[in-house]
Design a protein around this nucleic acid. Structure first.
Lengths: 335, 335
DNA sequence: TTGTAGGCGTTATCAT
DNA sequence: ATGATAACGCCTACAA
């Protein structure tokens, strides 16, 4: 894999580097046809490929932006990423991905590596565990947008959903369906949306004068969820409706239900927070809190582009509303 | 975002660039403590970040490899990618992702862009629709590994599963369960695994002297699947067992079953080709053909690394065996 | 132990 | 219409 450079092409075509460069960049206003042909021929024969590394060094931009996702399996991440790709495709900017897997060390490594590789900007689903790093990005005015999670004390463009309102809708719906014992289960409250969801749940109940049962509000590790649920439902004193705080929680709820022969939609109403792919076709069809992921991705992309192109350096918090999609899993009163 | 370069650090520390460079690369065998301190101080004060673009240009490698996935939503892709990341983490090589979304233009753009950006190698889930490009990669000996799909006439390291054997296992299992009318549904046979799966299905039936019913073998667009199934099952003459050729097909089968009140596992036995995340907890639990995605990813990574480091330039086809995980969806005889 | 100088492959400026 | 030349930021002999 010997490397062919522009200089090789120039020599082969009996022409100077500058002209080859102009050719490659489509500036042939004044270029003779014969010259073009010679260059084209030389490129083909030598198998020349341009080196963007060298170009980027000179131009001081890479036309590349990075997305650092916490969890690529998450439907919301993939939908948002798709939107971001679509947006930047039009601007001739390429998008590359890295996964932090919620690991702060990986996150740090990727952010620093992307920066060192001079990507023009970054969209981050922050783990929240690298405050100094985020502060640095902020103070150095590096083009960056946070999505899905708002971080305290970090003044960076951020795109999130209205988690509290989402909970308000879900709680309102379940109460209207006649449920009196509502529960919520989430992973540990380490990140913003989870805290907001729990807070929103409490708020929604209190606002309606409904009692808040601490025993029915649990935020635990995925691995403990099944046993926590078993405890919650022990001796027939469990809730009649449950809100699963995200998609992974939903899987655990299903495991629990299966194991304990609880029929979702019959013995237990279920609402899931997240765009579950199979929601409409699962048995029973699932009631979900749907996030406008594509729109959010577009917004994040636009905010990033504004920063990159220097059009704006204002920062803000952009909150999107969710939609409660009511299906079978929450419309049969438990009993 | 003014850029700070090594030269700035050098000036600030009252020292030369080369010394700063040595410092950054950990070669301080002979470096005075005072020099180190001065450099460190200057770096902190100026907020210096190294520029890997410049470094890569000089060193002629980026310590970066790319994965071009056809479909990141696919569980097998994400598992393989995870393995590849894990493998290269140890070698201090970073991994970045792009999605072709099965689109040959996107694939071409990404492959060319990654090359131009001098990534050290590429793992590709090929769309199969860019034969000239693949040929070029092959002839130029660019380090690349294909996964999931074998391409005819392209002599490049390739990692796949044994689709025919997988089908043999599935068919054998269904026959043993007493089914006589087996069907297979896949997306259009545009890529290798789909063709192999259909071929394997036929082979498995013929080998056992079972009749092959063309009407029960359909390869159609996702959007047509529901109606094709309705046609297949018209007036009670449908199959009693069905093999869904991949995860997307499975979703369509579920839609069809729901719509037509067919109970999977009771009226229709189902086997799904792919690592469906919810297989074990869905209702009924799903029989699946499981691919050793993580192992395959490791193998692909290792093959790529061998090429990158110049240890080997042999190419081959590496075939992994699948595992039939028998669950409820295929163990109740239809009626 | 540290500094000098040249080069990596491009692009941009200014000539010609 | 095309070419010479100097950057871009870093690394690496080799020199001091």
């Amino acid at each position: 894999m010997k490397r062919v450079t522009m200089a090789d092409v120039a020599t082969a075509a009996g022409i100077s580097k500058s002209t080859v460069s102009q050719f490659l960049n489509g500036r042939f206003e004044y270029m003779g046809q014969e010259t073009k042909d010679r260059i084209k021929k030389a490129i083909d024969e030598l198998g020349y490929h341009p080196n963007y590394i060298a170009r980027s060094l000179k131009q001081k931009r890479t036309s590349l932006i990075g997305i650092i996702a916490a969890n690529i399996v998450h439907t919301v991440s993939t939908e948002m990423s798709r939107a971001i790709e679509d947006y930047f495709q039009e601007k001739d900017i390429q998008v590359i991905f890295c996964n932090s897997y919620e690991d702060e060390n990986k996150e740090k490594k990727y952010i620093e590596s992307m920066r060192a590789r001079q990507v023009d900007g970054l969209v981050i689903f922050p783990t929240g565990k690298n405050p100094e790093l985020y502060k640095k990005l902020e103070s150095e005015k590096y083009p960056v947008v946070f999505v899905d999670r708002k971080l305290d004390g970090i003044d960076v463009n951020t795109v999130v959903v209205d988690n509290r309102d989402a909970m308000d809708q879900a709680v309102g719906h379940l109460l209207k369906e006649g449920h009196e014992k509502l529960a919520i289960l989430t992973p540990p409250p380490t990140i913003f949306p989870r805290r907001e969801r729990v807070a929103g749940f409490i708020e929604a109940l209190e606002k309606r004068g409904e009692p808040v049962n601490e025993h029915f509000m649990r935020s635990v590790e995925i691995s403990e969820m099944v046993s926590v649920l078993e405890e919650m439902f022990a001796n027939g004193k469990g809730p009649t409706a449950l809100i699963a705080g995200n998609d992974l929680t939903y899987f655990e709820v299903m495991k629990f239900a299966r194991k304990n022969e609880i029929r979702i939609g019959r013995n237990l109403a279920l609402v899931v927070f997240d765009n579950i792919e199979m929601a409409a076709i699962s048995e029973p069809a699932l009631t979900v809190i749907d996030q406008p992921a594509y729109e959010m991705g577009m917004k994040a992309a636009d905010l990033l582009f504004e920063q990159i192109s220097g059009k704006s350096d204002k920062t803000g918090l952009f909150v999107f509303q969710t939609e409660l999609k009511i299906r079978e899993s929450s419309t049969t009163i438990g009993g």
